[in-house]
Design a protein around this nucleic acid. Structure first.
Length: 790
RNA sequence: GCCGCGGUGGUGGAAUGGUUUACACGAUUGACUUAAAAUCAAUUGACCGUAAGGUCAUGAGGGUUCGACUCCCUCCCGCGGCACCA
């Protein structure tokens, strides 16, 4: 008897599927469409991670099932290949980034193909291909044209190790997301994208999409919308006045405001230089604040510090009281107006500061959320008082966001050149569309300069160009785009990857968009996911795409941790390489195990023993074929097998939709554990249900049964609710809600009959003896509960 | 501090108002084997009991209900995100 040998069958079927072109997708079809996508990988030098396998196997299972259900399914794949890791890898290994990329892609591709995933490889894309990034640049030009991209001299997060500016989204705990070096600050002229213009829509449109709650809340949190009021305080400077606006979310506490605080960078301070009596002290404080890193300044546990601006007073507009003004670094210049009204009684930070500097603390809202000590507003509910007081002092309702405009410049070689030309006469001139792509010049020296200038700046024959407008001397922009630029819109390019007239054909976009299901990592929620939603909305506004949200449904797979429960890492030596697993156990076992290991959205530790269990299960299925082929099986399905079979079809069908892959597979295991009753028909159905998870073995066994077509050309099994019904059921007998006995009875049995049967049972009699039966609860086909007095 | 998710056997987990612990792993015993591996069979929440059986267990405490892992309240712990954002 032939043993299960995945090495012998897997490559064979992979070739077969490829040759038959099973996964080439048509752009029009009578079938309903499903566009299903996994985040395309970054082809790093480390190769494929078992975490990739989890995401891809899951969605591959969905696609295979959907095809069997009669959908026209698009399941593409490509490479997100620009960016720092490749550049660093190239520098370290002395090979050019483009060579490194090619090498890494080849390796990834081999690995993906060894898994038997049903990608449509004919649509493969690569963000570093000029034919691709031509359109990334084109989108930038559109943003520029609509005044959504602009240059600004701003302090950016600067990673001294990567020698690059970072977006806020790329800074984690004050350190570079990638190399974990603490970031500093550097003032550079940067390209910025006005993502803040879309803040409200990025929040509001989450209502219309099917995203996990944690994803939605994380995005909403990140955008950080808060509603409040801008209130002007009069600043008394000797005998003249100035106005200072502050932002507050608690205008209801205005009567409790006992001082103002300006951030050290606030422009008013400079203007008051001559009137501030302790200028030297103030100046010293501001200098020290500037020296502190962002991380130090935002250290929560640190003591609050500040200096009063002597000789300056402010007027609380609510009660006309004179209050002091401070400069303190617990107020950020970048949020609101860079100045706050301090209400120590109702804000922890103000409270800490007031305690330290002995400032008055005045309670103005009581524990029933009503105003006290607030003049004519006493007794008013604080929610109402918010806007009444704002009106009273002539303030205005204002909304603030934590979201900042997107820093879009990178001072590195391995990225898309920003297609702008700087002309002394004409200023910033977009590269004409006909001249796209602006190709990244091939150079030998691509190390970062560290000066804040891109390595492209020294390539003079590339930098110096004629101005497209006036023909005069001009220079190219030398910054490149961040690695998020190419992934912003890649799902559109899959629809029409070879189009050289447009980023994709309108008809094709209309047919496929929005995407039906997009799976990816949680770590991209406030990066790629947010950015790409924004860019799609922009494309919608300029009429390129037909809807305002790209992804109808988003799911996120949990991380696959190492067996020791830590992250897999080369330095811990705990990395599982999918190649080794495929070699030893086969792709089917690996895929099945990763689906079975636990709930899809949860982080889970790898277990090689668990994997063995799945391998054993596939072996059992393999052995079953001989029983079927030798006709050692019964030809009549028993009632109980047919019942189990239909229950299994239902379970697997529904669980694939709802991401419950682990329970779908356990249902298949239960079916196989009952295999002593198997028939040829039920074995075939088992294979079809298994096929999305373990495609190679399913195809092999299907063909071994003598079938000439592919199992994936078969239609998905249907279940019959009627055949699922049990005709005999175990009815639970409870006494006072506790399980005491059970009886096997005909399904649909009546209450009266159950009562009679139950009360006649010896066990029940014992429990009930001498007690008064107060009531009997009967749930059809489930239980009877006899409630008696204790 | 705020937001989100979670806490069930030795382990991964199942059950979303009705027999807690499906399925799998591990462990123990037995069969096959010179032996091991593989495979097959049996047992496997804790406690009491020779057994029949019983008692107790879903982070802790309370509530609703005939009945709570499941719903509600209070608290504890873990994970993830945000954070001197006024």
């Amino acid at each position: 008897m032939e043993q299960y040998n995945p090495q012998r069958i897997e490559a064979k079927w992979q070739k077969f599927w490829e040759k038959k072109g099973f996964y080439k997708t048509e752009d029009s079809s009578k079938k309903p469409k499903k566009y299903i996508l996994v985040e395309f990988p970054y082809p790093s030098g480390d190769g494929l991670h078992v975490g990739h396998v989890r995401s891809y196997s899951a969605l591959d299972a969905v696609c295979r099932k959907k095809r069997m259900e009669g959908f026209n399914v698009l399941f593409p794949i490509g490479w997100d290949a620009f960016g720092l890791p490749t550049e660093n890898y190239a520098i370290k290994n002395g090979i050019h980034p483009s060579a490194a990329t090619g090498k890494n892609i080849a390796n990834f591709k081999r690995q993906l193909k060894s898994l038997g995933l049903s990608f449509d490889w004919s649509r493969e894309i690569n963000t570093t291909d000029p034919e691709y990034y031509k359109w990334t640049q084109w989108i930038f030009l559109k943003l520029f044209e609509k005044d959504m991209a602009y240059q600004a001299e701003i302090p950016v997060n600067w990673c001294p190790s990567c020698k690059i500016g970072l977006a806020n989204e790329e800074v984690v705990d004050g350190a570079c997301e990638r190399c974990h070096t603490p970031v500093g600050e550097k003032t550079l002229k940067q390209w910025m994208i006005r993502i803040t213009k879309y803040a409200d829509r990025l929040i509001d449109d989450l209502k219309n999409v099917d995203f996990p709650e944690r994803v939605k809340s994380q995005e909403i949190n990140w955008i950080g919308k808060s509603e409040g009021a801008e209130i002007k305080f009069k600043i008394v400077i000797g005998d003249t006045y100035d106005n200072l606006p502050v932002f507050t979310t608690r205008p209801d506490t205005l009567f409790g405001c006992t001082y103002l605080v300006l951030s050290p960078e606030h422009s008013l301070i400079e203007n008051l230089k001559l009137k501030i009596e302790n200028w030297d002290e103030v100046q010293k404080y501001r200098k020290e604040a500037k020296k502190k890193s962002e991380l130090e300044r935002t250290e929560l546990t640190k003591d609050k510090t500040g200096v009063e601006l002597k000789g300056i007073k402010a007027i609380n507009p609510a009660n006309n009281e004179e209050i002091p003004v401070f400069v303190a670094d617990y107020v950020l210049s970048s949020y609101g107006t860079g100045a706050i009204m301090a209400v120590p009684a109702h804000d922890q930070r103000d409270f800490d500061f007031a305690k330290k500097y002995n400032l008055p603390i005045k309670i103005v809202v009581d524990d029933k959320e009503r105003l006290v000590d607030s003049g004519k507003f006493n007794g008013m509910e604080s929610d109402v008082a918010k806007w009444e007081i704002t009106k009273f002092v002539g303030g205005k309702k204002t909304i603030n966001y934590k979201l900042r405009d997107w820093v879009f410049s990178r001072q590195h070689y391995w990225g898309e050149p920003i297609p702008i030309i700087h002309c002394l006469k004409c200023g910033q001139v977009p590269v004409p569309e006909k001249d796209l792509p602006v190709e990244l010049p091939y150079v030998e020296k691509y190390q970062p300069t560290g000066t804040g200038e891109s390595p492209l700046a020294v390539i003079t024959d590339w930098v110096n160009v004629k101005c497209p407008k006036c023909g005069g001397q001009a220079k190219r922009e030398t910054d490149t785009m961040p690695n998020w630029a190419g992934s912003n819109w890649y799902y559109l390019r899959y629809l029409d990857p070879k189009n050289n007239k447009a980023l994709a054909d309108v008809k094709k976009i209309k047919y496929w968009m929005p995407l039906d299901w997009y799976n990816g990592g949680m770590e991209h929620t406030t990066l790629h996911l947010l950015y790409s939603r924004f860019v799609y909305k922009f494309l919608y506004d300029i009429g390129i795409v037909p809807s305002s949200e790209p992804y109808q449904k988003r799911t996120s797979h949990g991380m696959v941790l190492a067996e020791d429960n830590r992250k897999m890492s080369k330095s811990f030596g705990n990395v599982i390489n999918p190649d080794d697993i495929v070699k030893k156990f086969g792709a089917d076992s690996l895929r099945l195990y990763e689906m079975f290991m636990g709930p899809f959205d949860q982080a889970i530790a790898w277990s090689t023993n668990g994997l063995r269990g799945c391998y054993r299960f596939l072996n059992k299925v393999w052995q079953l074929q001989f029983k079927v082929k030798r006709d050692l099986v019964s030809h009549l399905e028993t009632k109980s097998l047919s019942r189990l079979l239909h229950q299994t079809i239902k379970k697997v069908t529904e669980d694939i939709e709802s991401l419950n892959y682990n329970t779908a597979i356990s249902a298949l295991m239960i079916l196989v554990n009952q295999s002593d009753q198997i028939t040829k028909n039920s074995f075939e159905i088992l294979l079809k249900l298994l096929a999305p998870f373990a495609p190679h073995i399913a195809e092999e066994l299907w063909s071994n049964l003598g079938n000439k077509n592919s199992i994936f050309e078969e239609s998905w099994p249907k279940y019959d609710e009627k055949l699922m019904q049990e005709d005999k059921i175990n009815l639970i007998i409870q006494i006072n809600g506790k399980f005491r006995d059970k009886i096997e009875v005909e399904a649909e049995i009546s209450e009266g009959e159950v009562k009679k049967l139950t009360l006649n049972r010896e066990k029940v009699k014992q429990w009930v003896a001498g007690k008064e039966i107060k009531k009997i609860i009967f749930i059809k086909n489930k239980l009877i509960n006899i409630v008696c007095a204790e």
